[in-house]
Simulated assay, not measured.
Amino acid sequence: MSQQPKSSDDENQTEMYIRVKRNKTTYFLQCLPSEKVLQIKEKLQVLIDEPVNNQRLILIQTGEVLDDSKSLADQKVENDAAVALTLRKADNEFEDVNVVKPDDYIRDGDGGSNW
């Protein structure tokens, strides 16, 4: 398989994916480090039918709200990063982050056999 020559713009353009989590749902989005957060929200809009201005993305590792005008690389979002999605509520405020962790599924006394 031959590789295409890379221009300087393509430097650092290895495809990556991020995990966008909300409640019990995880969306796996393929993206490039150079993509702006707004472009990620546009991909999500197709999946969840929520306008981009009603979405907020938060890097779970740091709790930092991602800026629409900056790229993933600018905000240190790396391959396989987990990002929380919150949506705007009727009162114009954003909902709290609600991401279910795998530990939340383990019930006392069953030894975690539900995995």
Results as ranks from 00 to 15, higher is better:
N98Y: 04
K70Q: 08
T86C: 05
A81N: 09
G63D: 03
T86W: 01
E64Q: 12
K89I: 07
A82G: 09
D80M: 12
D80T: 13
A90G: 14
E95D: 15
K76T: 06
V83E: 00
A82Y: 01
K76N: 04
D80W: 13
L59H: 13
R88W: 10
A73C: 02
N79Q: 12
L87N: 13
N98S: 09
E64G: 02
A81L: 10
E64A: 13
E95C: 06
E93L: 14
V100W: 04
K70W: 03
K70T: 03
Q75T: 13
V100Q: 06
V97I: 15
V77L: 08
V97H: 08
D68R: 02
V77W: 01
K89N: 13
V65Q: 04
V97T: 12
A90T: 14
E95I: 07
V83W: 00
K89V: 13
D67N: 12
L66F: 08
D96E: 15
G63E: 01
L87S: 14
L85E: 00
V97M: 13
L59K: 13
N92H: 15
K101N: 10
V99Y: 03
L87K: 15
A73S: 04
N79I: 07
L59A: 11
R88I: 12
G63F: 03
F94Y: 15
V97E: 05
L59Y: 05
E64R: 10
V77E: 00
D80Y: 12
V65N: 01
K76Q: 09
V77D: 00
V97G: 01
D74G: 01
L72E: 00
T62E: 06
D67R: 12
A73Y: 01
Q75L: 02
D67E: 14
K101R: 09
E64P: 00
T62L: 04
K101M: 10
D74A: 09
A84I: 09
V83I: 15
E93D: 15
Q75Y: 05
L85M: 11
R88M: 14
V97P: 06
V83Y: 00
L66V: 09
A90P: 03
